[in-house]
Write a protein that binds this DNA or RNA. Sequence first.
DNA 1: CCTGAATCGTTGAACCTTCAACGAACCTAG
DNA 2: CTAGGTTCGTTGAAGGTTCAACGATTCAGG
Lengths: 152, 152
Amino acid sequence: MSDEAPWLDEAEMTTWLALIGVVMRLPGALEVQLRRDADLNHFEYCVLVGLEHAEGGTMRMSDLAFLCNGSLSRLSHVARRLESEGLIERFACPDDGRSTLARLTDDGRERLAQAAPGHVLLVRSLVFDELDDTEMRQMGEFAKRVLARIQA
Amino acid sequence: MSDEAPWLDEAEMTTWLALIGVVMRLPGALEVQLRRDADLNHFEYCVLVGLEHAEGGTMRMSDLAFLCNGSLSRLSHVARRLESEGLIERFACPDDGRSTLARLTDDGRERLAQAAPGHVLLVRSLVFDELDDTEMRQMGEFAKRVLARIQA
DNA sequence: CCTGAATCGTTGAACCTTCAACGAACCTAG
DNA sequence: CTAGGTTCGTTGAAGGTTCAACGATTCAGG
């Protein structure tokens, strides 16, 4: 871990409170819009976006779960819901009998199109409108470095 | 909202993916330690910490919910659990008959003491060890500005 | 006062996530 | 070949959060 002083000093505490505030409140803020525009929660939206960016709209469940920052179990439950709504479909991977592939359907793309414009507008209004280009890149770099530690 | 271009450019997307990665994975990373050391989830921990920093270890439910970045309903359910474990107690507010005050008990303080050292160490190892002092303050400032937008 | 609106907190049901257990497929060493 | 370990995904149960509805209290205006 670390060999530094045990508690956070004032500047660290200020930073931590702001960071944890964003972490706790951002998902809820995003979900209001997603629920209203496309009846999706944020994780479901991530799943659809992940598939949309994939080759052939298709991705392995494990890879998709990692990309969406969720557990495989979580994805499995969500995939069942999305499949029952006809937004994705699942089928066995021809190369590896253990794997399952998920593919975005046309209905899924359509649902995504309902959600995406409002989502991007909201993300802009909450984050990118507040930061100039330099700040935005710095923020991204910091987040990337912290994320690397969390994933390890 | 915003009148800018509808989609995120590459730099914005990189930033967004890193940010959302932290947002989605940080709570889980913190909860492993809290569960192990003190059998608490992150929101319960925030509640106890919030009370510890308050005058007399006492705070109004509404204020506590805001401080902990959660809904009042969520806090109410959690408070019932914490009270049944003897970590907090609730009583009517003498000044306003609608309000309920929550107070940290000695057992609550003890439980917090089990969790806190490991928590701080983990927070350091995930976030503050990665950033120098200038970067840490910048990150805090960015987060504070974004948080202000989310809260509005 | 008195009435309507707003605030505060709780509750139960619906929903979602986590966790542990499991079966199936693959891989590797002997 | 095959036995043991690993990876992959699913499942059901347990636990936590959200949502809408509610009762109680306070506040503002007439």
